[in-house]
Amino acid sequence: MPVATVREPMSQLLCQRLEASFPEAERTVALEKLKFLLRSIQNVPPITHTPPPMQPANPWPLAQVYQRLVLPEDGTPRGPLTADEDHALRQVHYLYEVQFAPKLENADVPGIRRPQSEIHARLLNEVRREFDALPFPPPRGEWETSTLLVAADLMVRAMLNGVQPTEVAIVASQEIPALPGRHLGGVKVHVVAWSAAIGLPWHTDATANPNAWDPSNPLGNEGNLLRAPVQLEWMDLRSLQQ
């Protein structure tokens, strides 16, 4: 069961290994991007189903990062890794699997258990589509930060509920006005997720939505998004420092 854990995403040893493998001008950006990615999935168990990406010709960026962390360059720290450092490597391996996960096929077929990374990749694409459809200006100029964090949060909630969600919808959204001295405004959304293979619960109260509910035509009844198994309230504010 996922458990919230607070830990530094990268130890000094791993930071030194990574920094030594990048040109000086790229080191800070590369390290900060990796730290954020690791923080974004800090509560997602990094369960993988493929061997570590150690092939030298592997073109995926996170495969190259993994190799730089595992095979330190001359002059960088060696020696055994701590439990937290091993966890960070598993996280990078997991992120790599999410990065190269194939498009999810037959998402509406019941009884198929998918690799966790494929479900996570599907959630990223679904959340990205939903955010891009919002009529509000995105915080910090783009939605990607929110996408990464929301998809990870949905993943944890889904695992706690024993669900492998394949569909995502934003069922409510609002723009938050700026608060002088506190923030520059932002957005608040209610996000839901469910499995296409299981479907959504049907309306049980004929008066709840008379325009959708027809007892004589059950095949025409609409699913109730507010009864989806995974629910999340999310708020993203533009900080004064951006």
Rank of each mutant, 00 (worst) to 15 (best):
V163C: 12
E130Y: 09
N161V: 05
M155H: 01
Q99I: 01
S117I: 13
P135W: 09
L123T: 07
R122N: 12
E167M: 13
A107N: 09
M155K: 00
I112D: 14
S146D: 11
T166W: 10
E97S: 05
G141L: 03
G111F: 11
P138F: 06
Y94E: 05
H93R: 06
A152Q: 01
L89S: 08
A158G: 09
I119V: 15
S146N: 10
E130V: 10
E105R: 11
E142H: 15
G111E: 13
L104M: 11
V98G: 09
N125Y: 11
S146F: 12
Y96P: 00
P138K: 07
N106Y: 10
R113I: 07
W143A: 03
Y94P: 02
A151M: 07
L123M: 12
V109Q: 14
H120G: 03
E142K: 14
V98Y: 12
P138G: 03
D86T: 12
P102G: 03
Q164L: 06
D153W: 10
M159D: 03
R90K: 14
F100A: 02
Q116W: 06
D153T: 13
A133C: 10
H120D: 06
R122H: 09
E126F: 09
Y96L: 02
I112V: 15
V98M: 06
D108W: 13
Q99G: 15
W143G: 05
V92C: 05
P110G: 11
A101C: 11
N125S: 14
A121M: 09
A121Y: 04
L134N: 09
P138W: 08
Q91S: 04
R157N: 01
A152C: 02
Q91I: 00
Q116E: 14
Q99W: 07
E118M: 15
T147L: 09
M159A: 05
N161H: 13
T147N: 13
L148C: 06
E105W: 09
P102I: 01
D132M: 08
